[in-house]
Structures are given as C-alpha cells and as structure tokens.
C-alpha cells in the first residue's frame, strides 16, 4: 500500500508518519519560542538584576531604547524567516516520503 493510503486508512504506520511530522513542527516551534524567550524575553530580568544598565547610553540614546525600540524588530523578522525555511523543509520531507511508493 502506498504511504498516502496508510495515512488515509489511519493505520498504525499512517499514524506514525503524521505523528512524526507533527512532532518535528512542534519541536521547531518550541525551539524558536525558546530563542525568543532567552533573548527579548529575558531583558526585564537583566535590567532588574543590573539596574545600572538603564543609565548606559550609546551616543545620546539610552541602551534600552536602542535594543527594544530599534534592534528587536529586525531580530523578530530574522527569527520568523528562519522558522519558515525550516518548517517548509519539514513539510517537503513529508511530501517526498508520501510520494515514494514502497517496493
């Protein structure tokens, strides 16, 4: 039986195929969100622990304004772009697997 048939008939093997795609995608999402948490998400703690950081300036601009107000946006875009590339790679691998006919 072709692998698509396994998925359509909801056999144990079919369940494994879909389950592994689901796990790959979820794991990728968790990794991306973990990266978001330890970078942007950790800033309040960093500024809480190091109160002196608030008075550091780069030129006329306080460092918090620079990091949050400027640098965070391109960083979010990069994270999103990386995620999309990897998520589509996972899906392409799944599609390839489905299209192979077992011999």
């Amino acid at each position: 039986m072709a692998r698509k048939g396994e998925v359509d008939a909801d056999t144990r093997l079919g369940g494994l195929y879909v389950g592994s795609l689901l796990r790959e995608q979820l794991w990728l999402a968790v990794r991306t969100l973990a990266l978001l948490t330890v970078t942007i998400g950790s800033l309040p703690v960093v500024f809480h622990v190091l109160p002196g950081l608030a008075s550091v300036h780069v030129g006329p601009v306080p460092v918090a304004w620079l990091v949050l107000g400027l640098a965070s946006y391109p960083f979010l875009v990069v994270l999103a772009w990386r995620y999309i590339r990897r998520a589509e790679r996972n899906e392409a691998a799944f599609a390839e697997l489905m299209d192979e006919v077992e011999r």
Binding site: L28, L33, I40, A64, G69, Y73, Y83
Partner: peptide, 23 residues
Amino acid sequence: ADMLWYPVGWTAGYLVLLVLVAA
C-alpha cells in the same frame, strides 16, 4: 522605556502566531 514593550509585544505576537497557529 517600559512602554516600548507595547509595540515590541504587538510585533512579537505575530512571531508567536506564525510558529504556533498560522498555517
């Protein structure tokens, strides 16, 4: 500066949406 979290959060919300629910 603590109010910068509003725009940053409103933007980051789309990253969370992308990885967890969009497709």
